[in-house]
């Protein structure tokens, strides 16, 4: 396995999985760790990219006190092995071959990971429908895949990427810092009449807020797919 540091707290792991059957962008896999005395712990992680033969990528956000994420993000070395199982999940997926509708992706924090798999799958889709990613982060340092997203948005005329900063914005950013709003979703998303399929992934509060705003704007709830993580808040 290889590790690539993405931010101070997120790392991408590239795993060689002999016999990997392939997967759809948006699916996840289960990682199970076994201690030398047989103790086990397992968690699910979103696949971050299309499979490259037997090579698959996950991006792991280290969570406080996370027994699996801290091991994966920090402790592993390139010849270490973990047990994996998957792919898992068949709902929060985009089909690069069969779907020509515009795609709106809305990410909160590390919720960008399965959405990045969809963006990276555009390379294999002909013709790729227009994609817009609205990516909410606390500060510029929290942007995962920052350089690749910018490069892809520059090279690919049908991919727009907008960062929403909730706490600290880079110099020159015109939008004031703050939570994602209906205006953000109107301005940087697709008009309702274009009937985009929408994928929203992030912490629970973020997903609740974004899906409520989208429905208020007139988007069809049946076209909004969500994936949430983390506690429900206080």
């Amino acid at each position: 396995m290889e590790r690539r540091r993405e931010t101070a707290t997120a790392s991408t792991l590239v795993l060689d999985v002999p016999g990997w059957p392939g997967h759809q962008p948006g699916q996840h896999l289960d990682v199970r760790l076994t201690a030398d005395d047989g103790y086990q712990a397992a968690r699910s992680y979103s696949l971050a990219a299309p499979a490259d033969g037997d090579r698959v990528e996950i991006t792991v956000q280290r969570v406080p006190d996370g027994e699996v994420s801290s091991y994966l993000a920090d402790a592993t070395q390139s010849d270490d092995a973990v047990e994996v199982r998957g792919p898992v999940g068949g709902w929060f997926v985009w089909n690069p071959q069969g779907d020509s509708r515009p795609v709106l992706l809305v990410a909160g924090g590390s919720g960008v990971v399965p959405l990045m798999a969809m963006i990276r799958s555009r390379d294999g889709a002909r013709p790729a429908p227009p994609f817009r990613l609205i990516y909410s982060v606390r500060s510029p340092d929290d942007r995962i895949y920052d350089q690749e997203l910018r490069r892809r948005a520059t090279e690919d005329g049908d991919l727009d990427v907008t960062f929403i900063y909730t706490r600290t914005a880079p110099g020159g950013e015109a939008r004031p810092v703050g939570r994602i709003s209906a205006d953000d979703l109107s301005m940087y998303g697709f008009p309702v009449v274009e009937e985009p399929i929408v994928y929203v992934c992030g912490p629970t509060g973020f997903v609740e807020r974004v899906s409520d705003l989208l429905i208020d704007l007139g988007h069809d709830p049946a076209k909004i797919k969500t994936e949430r993580f983390g506690p429900s808040g206080p």
């Binding site: 076994t34 030398d36 103790y39 712990a41 091991y71 973990v82 047990e83 994996v84 199982r85």
Partner: peptide
């Protein structure tokens, strides 16, 4: 959307993860 047979394949390697101790609470 693909059917379950396409969605779920199982790949398992049974191994010890070096240095992993876990939280054990």
């Amino acid at each position: 959307m693909e059917g379950p047979a396409d969605v779920l394949e199982v790949v398992v390697m049974s191994i010890v993860s070096r240095g992993f101790r876990g939280r054990r609470r």
